[in-house]
Simulated assay, not measured.
Amino acid sequence: MTTYSGTDEFEGATFVRASFKGATLRFSDVSGVTMRSVDVGGLDIDSHDLFFGSLFVNGVDVVPLVDAELNRQFPGRELQKAETPEGLREGWVAVQAAWQETVAGTPPELVDAHVEEEWSLVQTLRHLVLATDAWLRGGILRMPQPFHEIGQIFTGAEEMGFDMSIFRAEPPAYDEVLAVRAERQQLVTDFLATATPELLAEERDNPWGGDDWHPSVGDCIRVILEEEWAHLRYVRRDLARLR
């Protein structure tokens, strides 16, 4: 099967009576794509950025419908948008309870298993360590080097110039991942315990750089919550397939 990587040759192209059956698109830009009179049986779309835009199916923007359904499937998820300290604390408790259920219910033989090019449970927990480090330790607390060495960074970070020497080359043991993850969870719990509306409103720099967005402390916490819920969904989806 042919793989097209790093290409823009299809931008603005028109495909007529072409077959994309069984094709896979990863880390690709399909914004503004128009599809008419197409067969979409079994079409599977997964986009973390879905809720920042629109997706029209037969003239209906389905983004609000998807958002509402995910809130139904994951009670407490709606609190990732909370504006108050109380709401954020409640949202954090909800997502951590959901994660505890998933981790405790995963058999040992599946913690390192993964579907296709997706992350395993262990890798996902390592990424959530990194997300907490970036947005709490780095963004909010302004630590110069906030990252733990077992963190799992996003695909393409090295190509963006990120210093990968921060991270350990050999994968850590599962028990160590759980221990570091628990420490980072407690950091968020402790921070939220004393957070005030005034603190949440304070401005910070984007921990990933750039001058176009200066998040508030509350924004940083909301990003952590979004990461927690999104990756919980991914892990539960993949574990269901693995089982």
Rank of each mutant, 00 (worst) to 15 (best):
G139L: 00
L65P: 02
M35F: 06
A230I: 09
V217F: 02
L199V: 13
L121K: 00
V40P: 02
D163Y: 13
T3M: 11
R233Q: 13
Y234Q: 13
V66I: 15
Q152I: 02
W213A: 04
L25C: 11
A134P: 01
T7Y: 05
N206R: 06
G210D: 06
M160R: 15
D112H: 15
T155S: 12
D44M: 12
V62E: 01
G91V: 02
E116P: 02
F162H: 11
E202K: 14
L141R: 09
V223D: 09
V63E: 05
P171M: 08
S28K: 09
D212M: 14
V217C: 05
P146V: 01
V217W: 00
R184V: 03
I166Y: 08
G53E: 02
P146E: 00
I150G: 02
A82P: 00
A23M: 11
Q80K: 09
T34H: 10
C220G: 06
D190F: 01
H231F: 07
F154V: 11
R77G: 01
R184C: 05
Q100N: 15
G32L: 05
E116S: 12
L200P: 02
Q80M: 12
H48I: 14
D219T: 10
Q100H: 15
P107M: 08
E11G: 06
R243H: 13
L88I: 01
A169F: 12
G91F: 01
A134E: 05
G91S: 03
T84W: 03
G209Q: 12
P171K: 06
T2W: 07
L65S: 13
T14Y: 07
V103Q: 01
E183A: 09
V188C: 00
A94L: 05
V62S: 00
V16L: 14
E176Y: 09
P107Y: 07
A169Y: 12
F10Y: 15
W119M: 13
D133M: 00
E198F: 08
E109T: 11
G22R: 08
W229S: 01
M1R: 13
G139M: 00
V66N: 01
Q80D: 06
L136R: 00
R26H: 14
R184H: 10
E149W: 07
Q185S: 11
L55K: 05
G139W: 00
P107R: 12
L192D: 00
V30P: 03
Y4G: 04
V235S: 02
S54D: 08
V188H: 00
R142N: 13
E183T: 06
F56K: 14
H231V: 05
F10R: 08
V177T: 14
I45E: 05
T132I: 07
I45P: 04
A134H: 05
G41V: 05
L110T: 09
E183M: 09
V16R: 15
A98V: 10
W99Q: 03
M160G: 14
Q100E: 15
L70Q: 06
P85W: 04
L50R: 03
D238R: 04
G161S: 11
N206D: 12
L242P: 02
G6E: 07
D205A: 10
F74D: 06
L50T: 03
